[in-house]
């Protein structure tokens, strides 16, 4: 199923990616050829096959519910572009 320019715009919005008008066409054609490759999967019948989410079929390990990490706010905010009073700053959301 070929992917159209409108699909690219929809997906790009879902993934919060800005794409330029020139790029939309080339993404549509690249994604279409990747989908062609992916659709080879339809060659085989997989009904009744248990989907495999993890190579070793492990379940998530649980640990004791105790505090192991201490507060490192300042250190962790060093990589942020804009902070104030320990908060991350973004453009105004509510007027």
């Amino acid at each position: 199923m070929p992917i159209q320019s409108e699909d690219v715009l929809k997906i790009a919005h879902l993934a919060r990616l800005a794409v330029s008008d020139e790029q939309v066409k080339s993404y549509a054609s690249d994604l279409s050829s990747i989908m062609n490759l992916v659709e080879q999967m339809n060659e085989i019948d997989t009904s009744g096959v248990e989907p495999m989410a993890h190579p070793l079929d492990q379940s998530q390990r649980l640990r004791v519910d105790e505090v192991t990490e201490h507060n490192q706010r300042e250190l962790l905010q060093e990589n942020a572009v804009d902070t104030e009073d320990g908060l991350f700053l973004v453009p105004r959301v509510i007027d």
Partner: peptide, 26 residues
Amino acid sequence: IMMGAYVLSAGYYDAYYKKAQQVRRL
């Protein structure tokens, strides 16, 4: 990222993601 967002988007999950996980099992 777009490819991933597409195959996980509403209506396509079973056709692509679940199918791929089944192929993976095989």
